[in-house]
Write a protein that binds this DNA or RNA. Structure first.
Lengths: 337, 337
DNA sequence: CTGAAAGCGCTAACAA
DNA sequence: TTGTTAGCGCTTTCAG
């Protein structure tokens, strides 16, 4: 592996000049710059990451903490992770993958060792034990998700309250009066992840304004549990004419069950899903849906964290506005028999 | 951040002693070891990653290259990635996440900069452009997947040939004569990822021995495409009594469609899936399946790569044996009408 | 606009 | 069993 010194010798300049050509931190004459760049290319030089980190105390690495749990919809996590990685590369940074397994200790370790310059934390819970550590840490961090108390933190998330409200508005327009929310797995609520509750709040309060009735049932997402939930819903509220589904795994089973029960979508029942577009498009009926902007969240998280690394102080909370795409699964409420 | 020198002073020993306590590379008296460990704890010392990497030319980082594409079943990728990360931590290593985006250049960059000590590459194609680079690279690497020519490489993968054969055996036992394979998306075959072809080969040749007829149709996995594939299958081979499904996304739609068509599983049609257990268990009929051992693959990949880092030379190809779990979706072939 | 040189914090000979 | 010390390759003052 070629070293900076070798490049310097090859180009007939000093080491510092090569360094400055690389960093652009002081002006270099066109001529020497070209000579140096040539040498770099010819020797196939890549700066040594360790040496650079040691001398500059910047590793050009961003740590990404993903949850170990698997009860959330995994493709969304993956999409965020990939967006983070590619966006970070655009800023000349790499991404270190931390699983939740180490827990809060990972935060300490990475910060203290200087392994990463900053940290992005996914799947934040309302009362997350990593949050106090992050708040006190000398290294910048950005959360994807909203903890109970975001004071002193930087967070990005989809505006789930607005998402719920948007669903309510859309269904109200079609004259629906009885709405059922097929929610996330019970464990998600028990863990108080926040987003599920916020969706529900937004939907409920807007529904009230529209004079709609709402019931909510958690759903594990398997075929069996979806069947159970659906049965209970129509038993308790036979006039239910619209379903809002927040558990992506339940989408497929639910549509299959409705078909089986002879309930046509959207003639008998309208369905709005909160899910990635891919899921909405692959379903047996193209679903009206509010998309989870996974890429956008990853991208934003990196931009916020880079801002902090560079000493700027971004807005503490960034809520991405939801977008509802009307497809084939929603329509007017059936007129009373 | 405390430095090693500070720890040394605090413990009343030399820097090298602290270093050796940390690395265990030479024997230390019980007494000094304890004193040093205490100081480390008291000062909350974590070795500086950059300095360590520079001095030892080992970053204790393993790069993991994940595909950018999203036409493979994402949860499996994620599960492998998480298994890699947690296993690596057990070896005192961290994982750097590289997306396919940079392409082969990432291999060069990471190797030359010393950012990572080794590399694990997922979703390897039969004729992968990263493979020659990896083969020539000074840094160890392990592939998850099997390229066309594994010479000079280290690879782990599920034994897909055996997987196909296993499916054939199981169905033959039940007296099935006409089998249809619902395969991966056409793009997967076009890309020559290998595993899909190997499954098919294994299944076909074993089927021949059993006197079974096999047809194979690629399937995109959406409800619509699954419907089309299924229709064509039963049109061409009305006597088809068993389905082998290799595209996880098609599982849900397929079961829904069969139910709709009045084909009972397993009375009229047996179904074997090649998919993660979670998918097999969440389906409307508990599926007889061959599991994708994602965790095991991740774990093995790390162990192989660690062996190479430590100078050992592991077996070039590790094929994990498939395991078929019998559940509710397979049974005797229906007797001719 | 460019060069010289002092570290950054740690590892690993070499010495004792 | 422990200490001394010379780098590892780069960044960044300080000089010129």
């Amino acid at each position: 592996m070629a070293t900076l010194a070798e490049v310097a010798r090859h180009a007939g300049v000093s080491a510092s000049t090569v360094s400055y050509v690389l960093s652009g931190k002081r002006s270099i004459s066109e001529e020497t710059r070209l000579r140096v760049e040539n040498s770099i290319r010819e020797l196939g030089y890549h700066p040594n990451a360790g040496a650079r980190a040691l001398a500059s105390s910047r590793s050009h690495i961003i740590a990404l903490m993903v949850p170990l749990r698997t009860d959330m919809y995994v493709p969304v996590m993956m999409e965020i992770a990939i967006a983070v990685a590619t966006t970070a590369r655009g800023f000349g940074h790499d991404v270190l993958l931390l699983t939740g397994e180490e827990g809060p200790e990972a935060v300490r370790r990475v910060a203290a060792s200087g392994l990463a310059d900053a940290m992005i934390v996914m799947d934040v819970e309302l009362d997350d034990e990593r949050v106090p550590l992050l708040r006190d840490s000398a290294r910048p961090s950005v959360l994807i998700g909203l903890p109970g108390d975001p004071a002193g933190l930087t967070c990005v998330d989809l505006d789930f309250t607005a998402t719920g409200a948007l669903c309510a508005d859309h269904l109200a327009q079609f004259g629906h009066k009885d709405v059922a929310v097929i929610g996330e797995a019970a464990a998600v609520y028990r863990r108080h992840t926040g987003f599920a509750e916020r969706t529900l709040d937004g939907l409920r309060s807007r529904a009230r304004e529209h004079g709609m009735r709402v019931i909510h049932r958690p759903c594990e997402g398997s075929y069996e549990s979806t069947a159970g939930v659906l049965a209970r819903v129509f038993e308790e509220r036979p006039d239910t004419s619209a379903l809002v589904v927040q558990n992506e795994a339940a989408v497929g089973p639910m549509l299959a069950l409705l078909r089986q029960q002879g309930r046509a979508v959207p003639e008998d029942v309208s369905v709005v899903a909160i899910c990635p577009d891919q899921v909405a498009l692959q379903a047996s009926v193209q679903l009206t849906s509010v998309a989870i902007p996974a890429q956008e969240m990853g991208r934003q998280a990196v931009e916020l964290v880079m801002a902090k690394i560079e000493g700027r102080e971004p807005a503490p909370v960034t809520l991405l506005p939801p977008r509802l795409t009307v497809r084939a699964s929603t329509g007017p409420a059936p007129t009373a028999p």
